[in-house]
Design a protein around this nucleic acid. Structure first.
Lengths: 376, 376
DNA sequence: TTGTAAGCGTTATCAT
DNA sequence: ATGATAACGCTTACAA
């Protein structure tokens, strides 16, 4: 196979009976060398800014380069240097859910910015299913095109994570991870702040809707929730915890399970899920925050636009992507030893809007009244 | 295999005084050939599935490949075949606005899916500024790493578009374009449907908030708006057209200009902008649709979640991305002649929700009453 | 059916 | 300071 397709790219190279033409459409070092009357090596030195070239020669070479419109051929270069300046962003989640959440686009944006800043390119790999995952993984990483990878949002038992570790491919995770250096936010603290905010407002019966529990950062948020309650002497009720899978519909289903238990407030682990909760609450004729309070997580752009505007935990998503790439490139370029495992944890921040009834009035009306609002 | 573990990018290759080790960590064709007792070419034939190899030899080679864990080195391969199976997605907009709109993530998703389906990888290039744009362009396209590009959302005078054309790099645009084959939706028809919907409901004084007017698809939507009015004998009022730049705040500013003119309805050229309009309207104590009707464009995921749920023109964004890549790959693989310029235009669909007062009741209450609701 | 050998466009070593 | 020359790992006429 191959050979067919009627052949693109440098077709002139092999059978050009004509004779006079250069062998291919590409201007090579050789061409420049001939034009400048020097050797290939000298041209290479000029191109790569090596020191020991006389100013005079350099000028001549530069002129030839300019005249011929020479551009270094990065593939040929990569073949010898073993460097491609290409990194991958791997998103191992089921592809369909991914972009329903603004988290990933923003993360991507930060990651690409970091790439641009350091002259790298980013290859985007979204896995559609486990078969595709395996194929893509092979294509991308085992064959040398990509120098390293950032893995977003993968549970520790994800096959891609495993493979990356096994193959020793330089990689950085977004979100806490066991065997890979990672960049993450302080999920525990964020969750704890959210729940303490609710507690301070007098809410006692607080439910939570989580992401997929195999993700470590989801666990961290759950711990924050649990510990905030515990600090106030409120027993942890398993039934008040429901998994919403980080999707809107998942959150609506989770809410349906929670509602019969009559929670006064809900801490929802993502703004996307919170949007679903708000919508479901409205269709149940429950007012927010009068009947039930809601806190989200992310501070996605939509959070301020929801009705009511959502109180949420802000995480610096773009920075997360940026730092992940920075860390990866530092490893790639040997500035950081891979063994040091220098994880990065970024701070979060509570953004108070209207979905929890912050006003004194609402606060006083709450059936449980005020008590114990020290923020531990 | 891999030998080292610390040490990526085979620098050991040149100065390994030790002597015994293979020159690099990579298993090559040569290694396999030796193991199988055949020549390099034979192994190459097996790897590439060429016909004339005896079953017996093939089996032996396959075994050697398996044993050694051989993987073809795509860079070396690319150097001779001139193919990389890498395409780029270029997003020449100012990077900061880009991902505030769900359009791009969804487009990207479709594009990557198409890549996956055909064994290509997608390099993501977001331009931050014109300097970065020039750098990136050079890095990416003039040096042979990427075989072609999909350009999203660029006005015809965008320097990237120009450069692409000049350099003759295979490229496909998303959104109507002059000198490049493109994939787009029927913007004219979509806009016209939206405005006709408003007209049918009895609204007469209809304003519009547009995207940047240098984009052709923005012009197309404006034409649709204008022609729908004209068909009903309503004069086109320049003052009722405001540019919102496809951003939320831009739309809010545009609305501020429009509001003094007391429009009864507004056709907003994107859902993101419509969200801004809805919010601004609320803070002006105007009810939607009672005081003013709103139609959007896109049917972004958020459209159904807005308050009120947004009536909008649905465009198949993911398909747009998918088809753009398909077209590009067809060109790359010679299935489509680039000269044929086979543009693709996808249909749109009006999604009626609650932001225009569809009910008869609201309709009757409208101060202008009913007249002339034939849909032309 | 298989092997030989000539590239692909670079970089890097070693002379000079 | 500059030039030969040998890699890098692969594909592919062409010969056998």
């Amino acid at each position: 196979m191959k050979l067919e397709g009627l052949d693109f790219g440098g077709r002139a190279s092999y059978h050009n009976g004509v004779g006079a033409l250069p062998k291919t459409g590409v201007v090579t070092l050789e061409d420049v060398a001939r034009q400048a009357g020097v050797s290939r090596s000298t041209v290479s030195r000029v191109v790569n800014g090596h020191p020991h070239v006389s100013a005079e020669t350099r000028a001549r070479v530069l002129a030839a380069i300019e005249k011929l419109g020479y551009r270094p051929h990065s593939i040929a270069r990569s073949l010898v240097t073993r460097r491609t300046k290409l990194v991958a962003m791997l998103i191992p989640e089921s592809i369909s859910k991914i972009f329903s959440d603004p988290f990933f686009p923003i993360l991507l944006q930060g990651a690409v910015q970091a790439c641009n800043a350091r002259g790298y390119q980013m290859v985007l790999a979204l896995f559609e299913d486990s078969r595709g995952q395996k194929d893509l993984y092979g294509q991308l990483l085992q064959n040398g095109y990509v120098e390293g990878a950032v893995v977003a949002s993968a549970p520790p038992d994800d096959p891609t994570i495993q493979a990356l570790c096994k193959d020793g491919i330089p990689a950085v995770a977004v979100g806490r991870q066991l065997n890979l250096p990672y960049v993450d936010v302080d999920n525990y603290r964020g969750a704890r702040m959210a729940v303490e905010h609710l507690l301070n407002l007098g809410y006692r019966r607080i439910a939570t809707i989580t992401g997929p529990l195999n993700h470590l950062h989801v666990q961290d948020r759950l711990s924050g929730y649990r510990d905030a309650l515990k600090a106030q002497g409120i027993p942890y009720e398993e039934a008040l915890v429901a998994e919403g899978g980080f999707t809107e519909v998942g959150a609506m289903a989770a809410l349906a399970k929670l509602l019969p238990l009559k929670p006064e407030a809900i801490f929802v682990q993502s703004d996307t899920m919170a949007a679903g909760v708000l919508r479901a609450l409205r269709s149940n004729d429950l007012r927010v925050p009068e009947d039930i309070a809601v806190v989200g997580f992310d501070d996605a752009p939509m959070a301020a636009l929801l009705d009511p505007p959502l109180t949420t935990v802000r995480q610096p998503i773009r920075l997360l992507g940026f730092m992940a790439v920075e860390l990866l490139l530092d490893i790639l370029e040997g500035r950081k030893e891979k063994g040091q495992l220098a994880n990065i944890v970024l701070p979060v921040e509570l953004v108070v809007r209207n979905s929890c009834g912050v006003t004194r009035k609402t606060f006083a009306e709450n059936q449980w009244g005020r008590r114990g609002n020290e923020p531990n």
